[in-house]
Design a protein around this nucleic acid. Structure first.
Lengths: 203, 203
DNA sequence: TGTACATCAGTGAACGCGCGTTCACTGATGTAC
DNA sequence: TGTACATCAGTGAACGCGCGTTCACTGATGTAC
């Protein structure tokens, strides 16, 4: 493919190239030089758009958190039709995101980026996390006021289980030999958990 | 510290040095050269004991799986005093292991080692996983035969939630600002889950 | 007990490699007149 | 419509660095006699 001296949209092309490389080689295998090469450009050209390797990686993660938050909000759908259905939908959305945007997912959760070094990243991440907590908060009000755990606690439970299912059973790593599709596994796990909260009939 | 021409126990010294480095720099930041330096030895000396960098890393992981399996078996305690208590203990053991052996944990779960390239590693890992599945199997027999999920499924749920709690709330990464200690968070999550299975009274 | 010798763990120098980053530059683009 | 010029995105060569790995070697250890 030919192109002139100027690329046109190099910044996003580099982000896209980085995503491809992360999917293929993992977040640690991604290098600035390879991303430049994939975008058909000299490594030095990258510095017109990013401060360096980490900055490019951070932009990938930032775009990931944006997509993630949007997807969660869409799934949450303002708590309709019911608080329960909306909450379950956000759980599914977590896994759907990891499935559909594996490069972003790895940049966000497996790249070892420091939130301290990238405050804007922390901000965007908090927005995404906020959706799930909001859903938990709303669901919480359908529970008997006595003996209900804090909303932030069971949003953390669902988040942890979703994350664990993705890491252990959707990605090739350790225990990949689960007999169940990750989606089914998570669905069942969330169901049992919500039953334990008294939010679903005891079967 | 002085030592002669021969080290004495270089093999294990290298493993220990690798563990330190992994804890400090993460599994990707670990290098053969630094491990050799930490053991007060030339990089080339490493090749007397390991085939190369990956082989050293794999040995760290293998020792980790050994410790992990032993710890799980100890926690399981042959299903005593009750199947339920034993199952809960294995859940706690997962987190205790991650807390106590962070270097091993990272080599096992975050280093990106391929099980295909290290079959003995896969074998040891399967042994560790077997303990949890065995505990789940035994617990499963205390449930009404109708409508109980497969044992391998809810052992996967517990494993996923444990893993998620460790990754998200115990290690510095993304959502580190949980208000709850990871141990309490997991304890509560497993409790709710077991209640959902009908194995604990509905509160 | 002493000596010759085989073993082999660790040395030190060297290698090629790809990395991230810098620098002075070049040439395409688009605007002012 | 045409020309001069400022802008700035991308070039190409170079850098220093630390990596994993190799090789011929050296010197400590321990065993055979």
């Amino acid at each position: 493919m030919k192109r002139g001296y100027h690329h046109g949209n190099l910044r996003q092309a580099l982000v896209d190239a980085a995503l491809d490389l992360i999917v293929q080689n993992g977040p640690q295998g991604f290098t600035l030089s390879e991303a430049a090469k994939a975008a058909d450009v000299t490594p030095a050209a990258v510095y017109r758009h990013f401060a360096g390797r980490d900055d490019l990686m951070a932009e990938v993660a930032r775009q990931g958190y944006d997509i993630f938050a949007a997807l969660m909000e869409f799934a949450y759908n303002d708590g309709k039709p019911t608080a329960l259905a909306a909450f379950e939908a956000t759980g599914r959305a977590y896994l759907a995101f990891a499935r559909k945007y594996p490069g972003h997912y790895q940049a966000m959760f497996e790249s070892g980026l420091s939130f301290n070094a990238h405050p804007d990243l922390a901000f965007t991440a908090a927005r995404a996390r906020g959706v799930l907590e909001q859903a938990a908060e709303q669901l919480s009000q359908h529970m008997p006021a006595t003996r209900r755990p804090p909303a932030s606690m069971f949003s953390a439970h669902i988040w942890a289980m979703s994350h664990g299912v993705v890491e252990l059973f959707m990605r090739g790593t350790p225990g990949a030999k689960s007999a169940f599709p990750p989606e089914d596994l998570l669905e069942a796990g969330i169901g049992i958990y919500l039953r334990g909260l008294g939010l679903l009939p005891p079967e």
